[in-house]
């Protein structure tokens, strides 16, 4: 690996502010799935919704579940909100998504460069691994890294309505936010989402 002499852009975004903006004015056309750990607390804090599914287990499965939902509901937008550690557990899914290429799928990685839930151990993303570059190399052309509020605002329309698959890494501060626990029973959130989408549980 080559070393870079370029200074890293300063990180200023707070995770809750980011997630609130991602789901703002969502209406009934946005399906959201959060990956294990803090993204689940963030999505819950932004407001519970029948079309939220909080994946509180199976680390590494968030983007895959999002792929299935996107394919099943092509007229709705599928937004996966997950962490850098969660996605690093299954980078192959970016290749699968790049090839399957669902137009309605967005994956947002809240990248704090640490495993926040387990004691702030560093992830590979703070040590030179560039998830956006991985996504591009997997054929996901609409891929970018966001460092600032201005860049986030520019990215939001692409995340919510852009030609998918859209892959966005949002660099966030490595801070814990107040714990907000979503419904933990997947039997409940499963029936709720199926009913919202199909009219029957």
């Amino acid at each position: 690996m080559t070393t870079t002499t370029q200074a890293k852009p300063q990180i200023s975004l707070a995770r809750r502010d980011v997630v609130n903006q991602l789901v703002a004015d969502r209406g009934n056309d946005l399906m959201c799935l959060s990956g294990i750990g803090s993204p689940c607390w963030d999505l819950a804090a932004s407001g519970d919704h029948p079309m939220n599914f909080y994946l509180n287990g199976a680390m590494g499965s968030a983007a895959a579940i999002g792929l299935g939902l996107a394919l099943a509901q092509p007229k709705k937008r599928m937004l996966v909100i997950t962490g850098d550690g969660e996605l690093l557990m299954s980078l192959g899914i970016l290749a699968t998504i790049g090839v399957a290429a669902p137009k309605n799928l967005s994956v947002v990685v809240l990248d704090n460069e640490i495993y926040l839930e387990t004691g702030a151990q560093p992830t590979h993303t703070g040590r030179g691994v560039d998830l956006t570059a991985v996504a591009r190399a997997c054929g996901i052309r609409n891929a970018e890294t966001v460092y600032s509020q201005a860049e986030l605002e520019a990215a939001l329309p692409k995340i919510r309505k852009g030609d998918g698959p859209v892959f966005t890494v949002v660099k966030i501060l490595p801070e814990k936010a107040k714990l907000v626990i979503p419904p933990l029973e997947a039997t409940y959130t499963k029936h709720r989402m199926r009913e919202a989408l199909t009219g029957k549980p």
Partner: peptide, 16 residues
């Protein structure tokens, strides 16, 4: 293979 388990969980959530 585990991608497929995940994907089909999503498929079912979406009614397929």
């Amino acid at each position: 293979e585990e991608e497929g388990v995940g994907m089909l969980i999503g498929s079912w959530l979406g009614g397929t």
